[in-house]
Computed example of a mutant assay.
Amino acid sequence: MAADVKPRLIDDQLCVAVYNANKLFNHFYIETLKPYGLTFPQYIALCVLWEQDKLTVNEIGERVSLDSGTLTPLLRRLETNGWVKRTRSKVDERQVVVKLTAKAKSKRDEIYQHVTDCQDLLNYDDDTYVNSRSAMFDLSDRLKAVEGEDLSAK
């Protein structure tokens, strides 16, 4: 190790803070969505469809940064549980169009309210919420900017 390198202590490392927050946030959403039988990835797919119904699998994937190999089984489970209906596109049969069912439409406001009520337990004021979300988007953008770099050579 170079003499002029001062290692960061474990509690000072951003990666540890993000990792721990991610683990806790995942558990938070597992509990929050349990009454609806939804996983967090299923929830975010539904959120995309609640914003704009009748999207292709690829369009949903672009919005939530998931590939079709991950989305297909997720959407299959949503369909099995009555949340969405998947059909082949009439224009291009290679594409699968996903649309909300009556169940999904009728449960939207209830689920949004439940998630909001659970998030309120975090005691974020509006500014802290916006700043925290912005910091996460900034971190994501910075990580995307170095994607493809040979980090092992650094």
Rank of each mutant, 00 (worst) to 15 (best):
A3Y: 00
A3M: 04
A3D: 02
D4P: 09
V5K: 04
V5E: 13
K6E: 15
L9F: 07
I10W: 02
D12E: 02
D12I: 05
Q13L: 05
Q13Y: 07
C15G: 13
C15D: 08
A17K: 14
A17R: 13
N20K: 02
N20I: 03
A21R: 04
A21E: 13
N22Y: 15
N22L: 14
K23C: 14
K23T: 12
L24S: 08
F25C: 14
F25S: 15
N26Q: 13
H27M: 06
F28A: 13
Y29M: 03
Y29R: 07
I30N: 08
I30W: 12
T32D: 13
K34P: 01
K34E: 07
Y36M: 00
G37L: 00
L38T: 08
T39F: 06
T39V: 12
F40E: 10
Y43T: 02
Y43F: 04
Y43K: 08
A45G: 12
A45I: 11
V48E: 05
V48T: 14
L49A: 11
W50K: 15
W50T: 11
W50A: 13
E51W: 15
D53E: 13
D53C: 08
T56L: 00
T56W: 00
V57R: 10
V57C: 02
I60R: 00
I60C: 01
G61N: 01
G61H: 04
G61K: 05
E62K: 15
E62V: 06
E62Y: 10
R63W: 04
V64R: 04
V64H: 10
S65Y: 00
L66T: 11
D67P: 12
D67C: 13
D67L: 07
D67V: 10
D67H: 14
T70H: 15
L71Q: 04
P73S: 00
L75H: 02
R76Q: 14
R77I: 09
R77V: 10
L78N: 02
N81M: 10
N81Y: 14
G82N: 05
W83I: 02
W83K: 02
V84G: 05
V84C: 11
V84W: 14
R86E: 00
R86P: 00
R86V: 00
T87C: 14
T87S: 06
T87I: 09
T87P: 06
S89M: 03
K90D: 05
K90Y: 07
V91Y: 09
V91C: 09
E93D: 11
R94E: 15
Q95V: 04
V98G: 07
K99Q: 07
L100K: 13
A102L: 07
K103V: 13
K105H: 02
K105T: 02
K105P: 03
K107Q: 08
K107N: 03
E110N: 06
I111V: 15
Y112A: 04
Y112W: 08
Q113K: 07
V115C: 04
D117R: 11
C118E: 03
C118I: 05
Q119S: 13
D120I: 15
N123A: 09
D126K: 11
N131D: 12
N131T: 06
N131I: 05
S132D: 15
M136Q: 08
S140K: 12
R142Q: 01
L143S: 02
L143G: 00
L143W: 01
K144T: 03
A145T: 03
A145Y: 07
V146G: 12
V146F: 08
E147Y: 12
E147S: 15
G148E: 11
E149M: 05
E149H: 06
E149D: 04
S152K: 07
K154W: 14
K154H: 15
